[in-house]
Design a protein around this nucleic acid. Structure first.
Ligand code: FES
Ligand code: FES
Lengths: 157, 157
DNA sequence: TGTTAGTCCGACCTTATTGATCGGAGATCA
DNA sequence: TGATCTCCGATCAATAAGGTCGGACTAACA
């Protein structure tokens, strides 16, 4: 119910990892490749590759080809919102399939629909929530330090 | 992306209609049957029936069998939350598939997962939003009155 | 400079979820 | 009692997601 796809899940993990490698290590512009992420989180390699391709196409990360190649974050972590990531993978956010009426074709129920307005309000709230949360917020709240605390360190903010 | 299923959509429409018929007409305990709703909103009849069955099983509405039978709201409109409706149709709310770890089986990524905590926070926010919105709130905001005739005229057959 | 190894990239197939459908059981009113 | 109208459970088809394959490119190295 209201579940985001696994591909989006992988995208979030990968981006978090790339961001951590980029700002947490000593090397500032460190390039991280697909295999490293896939092995770290037990993600099917080829599937993760596909996800990263999509992310690169949407200008969230930059791809460097050849040996020692890989991906680098295209912007700073606090400039990337969760909404941007999810929309890159799964298309525009729409809580119901008739949210975005495409070129003159509305759903059958549109005429007598009684739930459109309140549902759009719910959708707006969710969109706002996702837009206000950045990748940096997701990294344990602490900006540059790598997390890695075994205890359930709260992410209160 | 984050789209709720069509069945849940139908459930919301049907419940709104039942509530309107129950409190908007002169008859307080009016029974409304499946066919009436299906024709009003152009919903496939049998599918809507299935949805209503599920709703009845979850004690959101009561079913009255036989001729002149149909469904009646089990509680007052302001006692039914959107979250209850959605969860009745689509199961418990989980933004990711590993939200509810079922009996000892966690996902492969659990060990090194870096996005679990923030995602649970997002899920909590959405759940709270849906729990605070009742069926009555969805009916134009105005409490019990305001359901005038547009529905009643279409129901005549 | 030629080779080679390692990377990204696009198209394809398989599986799971949702959407929709069918016939039967039970209950009420005439 | 009888017929009719309703709800109910099991079944089938369409769609989207998850996963997989081989090809194209780039950059480092000998
Ligand atoms: S379901 Fe499409 S407008 Fe309400
Ligand atoms: S994906 Fe399952 S715990 Fe993070």
């Amino acid at each position: 119910m209201l579940k985001i796809s696994k591909k989006a899940d992988y995208a979030l993990m990968a981006l978090q990892h790339i961001a951590a490698a980029q700002f947490g290590d000593m090397m500032p512009g460190r390039v991280v490749n697909t295999k490293e992420i896939a092995e770290e989180y037990n993600i099917p390699l080829e599937l993760l590759a596909k996800v990263l391709q999509t992310l690169a196409k949407n200008a969230l990360i930059e791809s460097h080809n050849g040996p020692k190649g890989g991906y680098v974050l295209a912007r700073r972590a606090h400039q990337i919102t969760i909404a941007q990531i999810l929309e890159s993978i799964e298309g525009p956010l729409g809580i119901t399939d008739c949210s975005h009426e495409k070129d003159g074709e509305f759903c059958m129920q549109r005429e007598h629909c009684n739930i459109r307005t309140p549902l759009l309000k719910v959708q707006d709230s969710i969109a706002q929530l996702l837009n206000n949360m950045t990748l940096q917020d997701m990294m344990g709240g602490t900006p540059l330090i790598t997390i890695q605390s075994p205890t359930a360190q709260g992410v209160e903010r």
